[in-house]
């Protein structure tokens, strides 16, 4: 299955890319497992926010084929 991953703000700088499509074996994977794969096993910074299909969630969330996952730092709008 394929999952689109997006990075914003300081997370984009850290990863050196704005987005990528990741291929994973099987038909479901957790966000935490995806992070391990894209970061080569680095710890996810504790303040990181996670969204799947534009809704906030956490590392235990399950991701399916075609989902869009985003990793970003605390928001600072307004």
């Amino acid at each position: 299955m394929n999952v689109k991953i997006r990075y914003f703000a300081s997370m984009r700088d850290r990863m050196g890319r704005a987005e990528e499509t990741v291929s994973v074996d099987g038909d479901a994977v957790t966000v935490a497992d995806l992070w391990k794969k894209v970061s080569s096993g680095q710890d996810l910074p504790g303040s990181t926010l996670i969204a799947v299909n534009m809704e906030y969630t956490n590392g235990a969330a399950t991701v399916k084929n075609g989902d869009e996952v985003a990793f970003f730092p605390p928001v600072t709008g307004g």
Partner: peptide
Amino acid sequence: VINYLKERAPFWKRESTPAGERWVEHN
């Protein structure tokens, strides 16, 4: 609305200062 927007809406500020550019870490 303004308080929750600042907590939840995905916007991020990057400031240009004499010391260079920096992401704002928190509101």
